[in-house]
Computed example of a mutant assay.
Amino acid sequence: MTEYDVTLEWPDGRTETVAVDPRETVLEVALRQGIRLPYDCREGTCITCVGRVLAAGEDDTPDAEEAVDAADVFDYRRQPRALTERERADGYVLLCIAVPRDDCRVAVGPMVRAEVGDSPWS
């Protein structure tokens, strides 16, 4: 079974890497390992668990000018209704319903949440 390494990065420089089976979400694995991430609905409608893909695959040095499209790195258990197409193209991902397709680095924390608009469903 393939697992993907998802490195979670907080603004204070702390990082945690979790090995995520493509049948599980990033949030499920993080919580099981005792990593505290914000979440609420677990359905992809409230935007509380949002992260931003910084880099994927072999390229672990992000280009500040170029966003990583979250669709290149993650699939979803269901349609992420709380994010717009533009937000997804800019690398935003809902960790409660996101299942990885590649190794990646993801920014997490309240600053990422502040970068996106409010969910139309909350």
Results as ranks from 00 to 15, higher is better:
residue 89 A to W: 01
residue 86 R to Y: 08
residue 102 D to H: 11
residue 87 E to K: 10
residue 80 P to N: 01
residue 91 G to E: 10
residue 93 V to M: 03
residue 79 Q to D: 15
residue 90 D to Y: 05
residue 91 G to P: 12
residue 99 V to S: 03
residue 91 G to F: 09
residue 90 D to T: 00
residue 84 T to S: 15
residue 103 D to G: 10
residue 111 M to C: 12
residue 92 Y to W: 05
residue 94 L to N: 12
residue 70 A to W: 11
residue 76 Y to Q: 02
residue 107 A to Y: 00
residue 70 A to P: 08
residue 88 R to A: 04
residue 89 A to K: 10
residue 106 V to P: 07
residue 88 R to L: 02
residue 80 P to T: 01
residue 110 P to M: 13
residue 87 E to D: 12
residue 87 E to Y: 04
residue 88 R to V: 12
residue 84 T to P: 11
residue 102 D to F: 00
residue 80 P to F: 03
residue 83 L to D: 11
residue 102 D to N: 07
residue 91 G to Y: 10
residue 80 P to R: 01
residue 106 V to E: 03
residue 79 Q to F: 14
residue 108 V to E: 11
residue 77 R to M: 08
residue 73 V to P: 06
residue 107 A to Q: 12
residue 90 D to I: 00
residue 73 V to A: 02
residue 90 D to Q: 14
residue 104 C to I: 10
residue 96 C to T: 09
residue 96 C to L: 04
residue 83 L to V: 07
residue 94 L to F: 06
residue 107 A to S: 12
residue 83 L to S: 06
residue 85 E to M: 05
residue 97 I to T: 06
residue 86 R to K: 10
residue 98 A to K: 07
residue 81 R to D: 15
residue 84 T to K: 08
residue 101 R to A: 03
residue 110 P to A: 14
residue 73 V to K: 08
residue 103 D to T: 10
residue 79 Q to I: 13
residue 75 D to R: 08
residue 102 D to A: 15
residue 84 T to C: 09
residue 81 R to F: 15
residue 104 C to G: 07
residue 109 G to C: 13
residue 104 C to E: 04
residue 78 R to D: 13
residue 86 R to G: 04
residue 70 A to R: 11
residue 95 L to A: 00
residue 92 Y to S: 12
residue 96 C to M: 03
residue 109 G to A: 04
residue 94 L to D: 09
residue 73 V to F: 05
residue 102 D to G: 08
residue 79 Q to S: 14
residue 83 L to E: 10
residue 76 Y to V: 03
residue 99 V to Q: 13
residue 77 R to Q: 11
residue 71 A to W: 07
residue 86 R to I: 00
residue 84 T to I: 05
residue 90 D to W: 06
residue 70 A to G: 05
residue 86 R to D: 14
residue 81 R to N: 12
residue 77 R to C: 00
residue 90 D to C: 02
residue 108 V to T: 08
residue 81 R to I: 06
residue 86 R to P: 06
residue 111 M to V: 11
residue 85 E to G: 13
residue 81 R to S: 14
residue 85 E to R: 15
residue 102 D to W: 07
residue 106 V to I: 11
residue 71 A to D: 12
residue 75 D to Q: 02
residue 94 L to Q: 07
residue 96 C to F: 07
residue 80 P to M: 02
residue 104 C to P: 14
residue 106 V to S: 05
residue 92 Y to K: 09
residue 101 R to W: 00
residue 95 L to E: 04
residue 89 A to Q: 10
residue 109 G to N: 11
residue 78 R to F: 09
residue 105 R to W: 09
residue 107 A to T: 03
residue 82 A to C: 15
residue 93 V to H: 07
residue 103 D to Q: 04
residue 79 Q to R: 15
residue 72 D to Y: 00
residue 96 C to V: 00
residue 77 R to N: 14
residue 99 V to C: 15
residue 77 R to H: 03
residue 84 T to W: 02
residue 92 Y to E: 12
